[in-house]
């Protein structure tokens, strides 16, 4: 798939809570085919300490409107600057990058997202449903305040929430949710590494395939710098080109 570098226009911005927002960016040319799990690398301008691009999961793609949705949590200067973008502003983006989640057919799929790691799961949920799968999503967050943007998942399947303080949904971590007692054929996860490792352990115990999306610090995003490597059974490989999605059997987890 050909990689592109293009100026996008900020078309819409929605604050989900104090630290999290979704921006819709419109491409200047018709979007190429974008797969669930792929990411973009965006240029943050006018931020003195943000030298490198910021890799961000693709949250959703709307081909009719020619937009990509990015789900962003303000963590440092770069993401905070992105939160200050105004409608009409330009955003320079290198895309589409990385591999993709596998899309099985007619299976029971379980998606587990933690915090802003939920970002790629909405687009994945759509593709899974389109392929005839049953989709169950669990979002793990700290408290009700962070349980944002649940409705969009409902059109693709069931959505459950776990909170650390029990303020909404089941109390605990997503890997402790009661729905895990059901039988699933595949798990897909993105979020903090301890959570993904717990999902991997669960999947291994049930003997079902599990794919995780890793988030390593990277410079280029397309395999040139060799900075974002993951230590796999095949040695050090680039997370940006051979990932970000890995089957857990490839990893040394």
């Amino acid at each position: 798939m050909k990689k592109l570098v293009q100026d996008f226009e900020v078309l819409h911005k929605e604050e989900l809570n104090d630290g999290t927002f979704v921006i819709d960016v419109k491409a200047s040319a018709p979007l190429p085919d974008i797969k669930p799990g792929q990411f973009v690398n965006v240029l943050v301008e006018n931020a003195a300490n943000t030298f490198l691009r910021r890799p961000l999961s693709i949250h959703f793609v709307d081909y009719e409107k020619n937009i990509i949705k990015l789900y962003i949590k303000k963590i440092g200067e770069g993401t905070t600057k992105l939160g200050e973008l105004l409608l009409g502003d330009k955003l320079n983006i290198v895309f589409p990058l990385g591999n993709q989640y596998s899309i099985p057919k007619n299976s029971k799929t379980l998606l587990i997202g933690g915090g802003c790691g939920v970002a790629p799961l909405l687009y994945l949920a759509k593709h899974l449903k389109d392929a005839g799968n049953e989709v169950t999503t669990i979002l793990g967050v700290r408290s009700a305040y962070d349980a944002v943007e649940l409705d969009p998942y409902k059109q693709y399947g069931r959505i459950f929430v776990t909170t650390e303080d029990g303020s909404i949904g089941e109390k605990g971590y997503p890997t402790q949710h009661s729905v895990l007692n059901e039988k699933f054929d595949y798990t897909f996860t993105c979020g903090p590494e301890p959570m993904m490792k717990a999902v991997a352990t669960y999947s291994k115990s049930k003997n079902i395939p599990c794919e995780v999306s890793l988030e390593n610090t990277m410079a280029c995003g397309f395999g040139a710098c060799l900075c974002c490597v993951t230590d796999t059974k095949r040695g050090n490989i680039c997370t940006c080109t051979e990932g970000p999605v890995f089957n857990i059997n490839e990893l040394k987890w």
Binding site: N49, L52, N216, M218, A219, C227, T230, D231, N236
Partner: peptide, 23 residues
């Protein structure tokens, strides 16, 4: 050469540090 273990890169003001190690 496998190069050095992750993490191999750190962003700095107007630059970056790398420790790829000739992978």
């Amino acid at each position: 050469r496998e190069g050095n273990p992750y993490p191999r890169m750190a962003e700095t003001p107007s630059g970056m540090l790398n420790a790829v190690g000739l992978q």
